[in-house]
Design a protein around this nucleic acid. Sequence first.
DNA 1: CCACTGACGAGTG
DNA 2: GCACTCGCCAGTG
Length: 108
Amino acid sequence: MMNASRTYRAIYRTVNRIPKGKVATYGQVATASGIPGAARQVGYALHALSDVTTVPWHRVVNAQGAISRRSNAWDAEVEQRSRLQAEGVEFSEAGRIPLGRFQWRTTA
DNA sequence: CCACTGACGAGTG
DNA sequence: GCACTCGCCAGTG
């Protein structure tokens, strides 16, 4: 990642803590990063990531357990889904993840 | 400095 | 479940 504000760094740090096989919501990442309510900034921060990054951005989904799509990258959406399935995360018929079973519990 | 935009969330009707 | 509103804050023109 490149030089980012402390907010971005906090977000990247949190995303890096998401364990394999689990997912976190944007709001959850924002709260865990010390900026509750700034879910939007989480999405923006991830969007600002380079293609070559060590941050597991694919483990971040929206509050509905669905994959949010970017400006115009359906392929990236598919890739994210594939990566998650490869880690053991299941998708419902509606293409959503049952957060009750796969959401990362920060307050454990 | 001001206005607008953007991988979103939560609340309300 | 759908449509609408407000709040978040960094980037850009």
